[in-house]
Amino acid sequence: MRGMSLIVQVMTGLLAGILLLYGGYIILHGHLTPGGGFAGGVLVAAALILVSLAFGAVEQVERREYILSSIFESSGGLLFLGLAVAGYLAADYFFRNAGLFYIGRPLELVSGGIIPLANIAIGLKVGAGLFAIFLALGASRFVMKE
């Protein structure tokens, strides 16, 4: 059997999506509660790593995932930089927040201007980046050896 034992596989199947959902929750509520892009991104990466450890993967799939995650990582970085440059072009200030995007009312989900967007960018970068690190370290190869 590829991957880990049945117990791990079934529980992973139940929980991986919920872990991803919780990561998304943390990322999107980064401007309202503790946590944010980095913490949520780590959770997202944890979900991806959990699935790839539990079910194992063939070399080809891993390669494809690696390329995909590196693309996602770069686009997260570009998105973050784009937010900074948007402020720069609109109001002369890097990372300018006031007056550029909809600020909203405090403690609502859509509020805080560019901060939620920046959190999403960071979450994308961290999640994809950590998963890419995992794949590059080849940790799943050790599980598959038997």
Binding site: I67, I71, S74, S75, G77, L78, L81, A84, V85, F94
Partner: peptide, 15 residues
């Protein structure tokens, strides 16, 4: 901003 943009673009475009 310039070198960071370059650094993020390189992995995307070199695909």
């Amino acid at each position: 901003a310039i070198p960071l943009a370059g650094a993020f673009l390189v992995p995307l475009l070199s695909k």
